[in-house]
Design a protein around this nucleic acid. Structure first.
Lengths: 341, 341
DNA sequence: TTGAAAGCGGTACCAA
DNA sequence: TTGGTACCGCTTTCAA
């Protein structure tokens, strides 16, 4: 290939010179304005095509005020749930001709300096999927009128949200386990940090507790495999009489850790103890785990989240809105089944 | 909180009016230009601070030509290796005051429409960590002079790269297995798509084969857990006499699948057969796996990658460069150890 | 030490 | 149906 130093970028101005018409005409022709004659439009389009013209979004943003940029705050990508969310968001955003500016990925809150980028690049809106959007960042958005949508998060101050019906998910899991004859449950939660976890636990506890059934123990699983492992060890160490007959972990990654620890301690799953999770990440479906879980409707959550964002970008006065989507119980082999009817 | 409609964004112009000086003066004062008196600089800085001034990067880019934006092409985030890479890149880029525009995340090549975004947003450079940057996208970059750096990839046409010394990694693993007394190896590769995989396999094969030792079988692991599983099943199904005594998978995710399949077939790891991987992702370190692996120096790869990119952005004529970084053998329990010396 | 003014590449309003 | 022009916010050169 030639080492041709890249040609100067074609602009409206260079096109207008080539076409012998004004800049405004080229601009209108390219966006299909009906006021320009069909012939002229076609010839200008051909010219642009040939020159490899690409509109400069930055320049457009200068005058139109719209960047087409969405700020993205992602949770810890090492949890496969967020990885799946990321892929889904990238794909759906691209389909809507929106681009994502990554503000944060990983555990912990987003830095203040990062929150500033949000303003500096004039993002049209902000998508938050992480557990932690610092209140500083939230405030920045609110103050400067940047619409915020949370996915997989309860909405807060000046934000909309699309999430899974976590409480119902917890309830469904509880009903399933009770139907399977379980009487003593252990819940592994996330230490109170996340409202998702709290909702799941609340739904579970509410639906599980009852005649001759109780949530007998609670552990902090810190949303990590290691946290789940520690909880699993603690459960395995309980005297057999008091030991729970089932475990509900508020996320699959925790459930995996717990399951491995229980097995390492010599317990059989689900023979000695059932283990269930939440999210239904691909990892949890693998043969050694086959974890019964509650699947979050990730694609739908992302789609509705982008809808909400788009609506708020188009009409800033649109009132905030919270969308709750129902998930689906996915039965695998990690929990004893209810008797066949 | 008040529902105060967000104030208009402060600009150089509004600050200059407030300060009673010209726009140029404010601009220079804010960037610490020595020509502005210290007192004036301080008072303007205070004003800006109070008003919550944030420079408009887009406007700056219009005149300076530099956006501070890096295009990011990421591989399948569902492989924890890419998830780790993502977190590292986001963090290090932020530390350098560079922002990431996500162009692609997931398996498969990037779409043509996406490649255009790269131009439209005038990214200063492009970071590619995926196996597949379409040649169209590569061409777009080359033609418009956007520097490209590959991380974990062999450099191609008009691009620099920072990657792990894959061949050496393969060799080290081979030496380790041979020292452990292994004689018949199976290699699970990625089907030829990735040069990484090829390099690892080449290094391994070269160092393993020799007196009374050979690579006895090859399988396509498709870079996925499922691919590894299928290969594991195939290995387990081999007649015992011909069965390999060790497995080298070119990535941990493959190794995990293979290991699970081998165990499901009743083989013990490492007693009956040793299993090793590559990458040293956190998942591979978990107790049930404890996979002996070759760790890629992810942080260093990202750091050097960003260095290369920054250098090319600052001086476009900087020649392309390929950096090879050595990784580290991480010995765990999935492979028989060499006898203690 | 400070200010005025010309762009950067579009958009959109007002004329013609 | 088309052209002229002001403007978006900042950088930078040239004058003062």
């Amino acid at each position: 290939m030639e080492d041709a130093p890249h040609r100067p970028r074609p602009t409206l101005s260079s096109l207008s010179a080539a076409a012998g018409v004004s800049i405004s005409t080229v601009s209108r022709a390219l966006k299909g304005d009906a006021r320009i004659s069909a012939r002229l439009r076609a010839s200008i389009a051909a010219l642009a095509q040939e020159a490899g013209y690409q509109p400069d979004i930055l320049a457009r943003a200068m005058s139109s005020g719209r960047t087409g940029l969405l700020g993205l705050v992602l949770g810890p990508a090492t949890n496969p749930f967020y990885a799946a969310l990321l892929e889904e968001v990238v794909q759906q955003a691209a389909a809507r001709a929106m681009r994502l500016l990554i503000l944060h990925a990983g555990p912990g809150p987003i830095e203040d300096r990062t929150a500033e980028a949000l303003l500096q690049y004039r993002v049209d809106g902000c998508l938050v999927t992480s557990a932690d959007m610092s209140s500083r960042a939230a405030e920045v958005c609110a103050r400067s009128g940047v619409p915020v949508v949370m996915i997989n998060r309860v909405p807060r101050l000046h934000a909309s949200a699309a999430s899974c019906d976590n409480e119902e998910g917890g309830r469904e899991m509880a009903r399933f386990l009770r139907a399977g004859g379980h009487r003593r449950a252990a819940v592994i939660h996330t230490g109170g940090a996340s409202s998702n976890g709290l909702d799941r636990e609340r739904g579970f506890t509410e639906a599980f507790a009852g005649r001759k059934a109780e949530v007998a123990a609670r552990f902090d699983g810190r949303s990590t495999y290691e946290g789940g492992w520690a909880a699993g060890e603690a459960i395995a160490a309980m005297p057999q009489k008091r030991r729970p007959d089932c475990v509900f972990a508020v996320s699959d990654i925790i459930a995996m850790g717990a399951m491995d620890a229980l097995r390492a301690a010599g317990l059989r799953v689900p023979k000695d103890i059932s283990v269930t999770g939440f999210d239904s990440i691909p990892d949890a479906a693998r043969p050694p785990y086959a974890i019964t879980s509650y699947e979050q409707p990730v694609a739908a959550m992302v789609a509705r989240g982008l809808d909400l964002l788009a609506a708020r970008i188009a009409r800033p006065d649109t009132p905030d809105e919270a969308v709750l989507l129902r998930g689906r119980l996915v039965i695998r082999r990690s929990a004893r089944l209810p008797p066949a009817p």
